[in-house]
Simulated assay, not measured.
Amino acid sequence: MIITIGGLAGSGTSTTSRILSEKTGIPSVSAGDIFRQMAAERGMDILEFSKFAEGNTEIDQEIDQRQAELARKADDLIVEGRLSAYFVEADLKVWCTAPMDIRAERISQRENKPINQAREEIITREQSEAQRYLEIHNINTHNLDVYDIVINTHAFKADSVAQIILKITEVI
């Protein structure tokens, strides 16, 4: 089974993917990890690389291609990334959401930075990504029609989010 899990920064996609992978034994791959790896390869932090990627469409295309290729080769895979649902043929496409304050708090704790800084970085990153995705792929990030289910990860504990997804996989 191929499952994509998308969502904005701090919405719980990484946690959901990890827990789901642990519960099912299905391996997972993250677009964010690929993006961070590519940033590190160029000696940039995530915001610098995000700005750099705005003028280099091949960055986004490479991330998309890497994910799609991994999914094509796998029988079972959890693919985590904002655009994964658009480029990966999946049995289930999930979008995770959470209020901005919750997402900023999560990133603040994860990256050990002030909440206000995390919030500003989220806003900058999301504006940059929305612009790139529209220009490169003609994808409006506010249109969630491609997803089979949208889950507010603030409304449930992380383990419960994975359980919801597992229940859905039982009926597809």
Rank of each mutant, 00 (worst) to 15 (best):
Met1Ala: 12
Thr4His: 12
Gly7Gln: 12
Gly10Ala: 09
Ser11Arg: 11
Ser11Glu: 05
Gly12Lys: 06
Ser14Tyr: 03
Thr15His: 02
Thr16Trp: 00
Ser17Ile: 10
Arg18Asp: 03
Arg18Met: 07
Ile19Trp: 02
Leu20Ser: 02
Leu20Ala: 01
Ser21Asn: 01
Glu22Ala: 04
Glu22Asn: 05
Thr24Gly: 04
Gly25Pro: 00
Pro27Thr: 07
Ser28Tyr: 14
Val29Cys: 10
Ser30Ile: 03
Ala31Lys: 09
Gly32Leu: 05
Ile34Gly: 07
Phe35Met: 02
Phe35Thr: 11
Gly43Asn: 10
Met44Glu: 05
Ile46Leu: 07
Ile46Asp: 05
Leu47Cys: 08
Glu48Val: 06
Ser50Asp: 06
Lys51Met: 05
Lys51Asn: 07
Phe52Trp: 02
Gly55Ile: 01
Gly55Val: 03
Thr57Ile: 08
Thr57Gln: 01
Ile59Asn: 00
Ile59Met: 00
Gln61Met: 10
Gln61Tyr: 03
Glu62Thr: 14
Glu62Ala: 11
Ile63Phe: 02
Gln67Arg: 10
Ala68Met: 08
Glu69Arg: 13
Leu70Arg: 15
Ala71Gly: 13
Ala71Lys: 11
Ala71Leu: 09
Lys73Gln: 14
Asp75Met: 11
Asp76Ser: 15
Leu77Gln: 05
Ile78Tyr: 02
Ile78Thr: 04
Gly81His: 11
Gly81Gln: 11
Leu83Lys: 12
Tyr86Leu: 01
Leu92Ala: 10
Lys93Arg: 14
Met100His: 04
Ala104Val: 12
Glu111Asp: 15
Asn112Gly: 08
Asn112Asp: 14
Asn112Ala: 10
Lys113Gly: 02
Pro114Val: 01
Asn116Pro: 00
Ala118Cys: 03
Ala118Asp: 08
Glu121Gln: 04
Ile122Ser: 03
Ile122Glu: 02
Ile123Glu: 15
Thr124Arg: 14
Ser128Lys: 03
Gln131Thr: 15
Leu134Phe: 14
His137Leu: 03
His137Gln: 08
Ile139Cys: 13
Asn140Ser: 09
Asn140Lys: 06
Thr141His: 02
His142Gly: 13
Asn143Ser: 10
Asn143Trp: 11
Val150Ala: 09
Ile151Gly: 03
Asn152Met: 05
Asn152Thr: 05
Thr153Asn: 07
Asp159Val: 08
Ile164Thr: 05
Ile165Gly: 08
Ile168Met: 14
Thr169Phe: 00
Thr169Ala: 00
Thr169Ile: 09
Val171Ser: 13
